[in-house]
Amino acid sequence: MSAAVLPVRPGIPADSRLRFSGILRSEWIKLTSLRSTLWSLLTIILVGIGLSFVLALTMESAGVPDEPSVRFTLSIVAIGAACGQFVAAVLGVLAISGEYSTKMVQSTLAAVPSRLPVLAAKAMVLLGLVTAVGLVTLFGSWAATYAMFDDLGLAVSLAEPGLAGALLGAALFLGLTATFALGVGAILRSAAGGVAAVLGVLLLLPLALSLLGNSMEWVAAVTPYGFAAAGESMWSIPAGPAAGSPVPGTPLTPGAGGLVVLAWTTMSLVLGALTLRGRDA
């Protein structure tokens, strides 16, 4: 072939080629260069820590246990995961639907015509960034409310068995929620459709399952395996002291809950990958 002999240009290394590390950097630049991302992440942190702080301020009048309790502390400190999951979900959907609505996807896929590495890189960047923000939020909530717990003689240190693990699980749940939503966004390619679908899974599905579960036994049996329910067991304290005892009301240990959420996330990413590879951009 008569490929032109091109002079070396400054800024283009001689071995310049498509590499996964480069695609990862590219997706990092894309995600962090949008103001909407920064606002979303800041919202997760501020709302999470803020709500924990307000709940802690009023906890005495709402009723407190007699002695320090990891479970009680989590009910106040882990509120950031319960609220932040919705912001994380929107962020995850937009990370890919935003490319389609703005036609950015043409530029992206022209640079990476093999396509699938783009989705993999987006998933890794989202998982890492949102989980990190989750850690800041949850450990921040614990730190911000520590003095108020201490005043009531209810302070629980991070060394207390279960607390640090639950906060870690909650942060990981936020990261996985964003990644799960990314897969849904890749399947539906639309912000409105993607957000509606993910909020359906997070909010409506648990509600519908619990209503149906009253009359149908098998529905009650699968309810703990829903995305949101399994996610909640990631930051819950097992009923018994023995290793491997499940979270109250579910057959899942926190670790098993994490695996269920991971399975949901993997499924959505695989379907998203099939859509990305199969359809015209």
């Binding site: 800024g11 283009i12 498509l18 950097r25 630049i29 894309k30 949008l34 703005t102 036609k103």
Partner: peptide, 30 residues
């Protein structure tokens, strides 16, 4: 292919830096 194939919320420089990064192309070329 399309003059609008860039995210409206991203600066021109970041847009180019993101595309360049996939191939290890440096900021000098951008």
């Amino acid at each position: 292919l399309d003059a609008k194939a860039a995210h409206p919320g991203r600066t021109a420089r970041k847009h180019l830096l993101a595309l360049a990064a996939t191939h290890g192309i440096e900021a000098a070329r951008v």
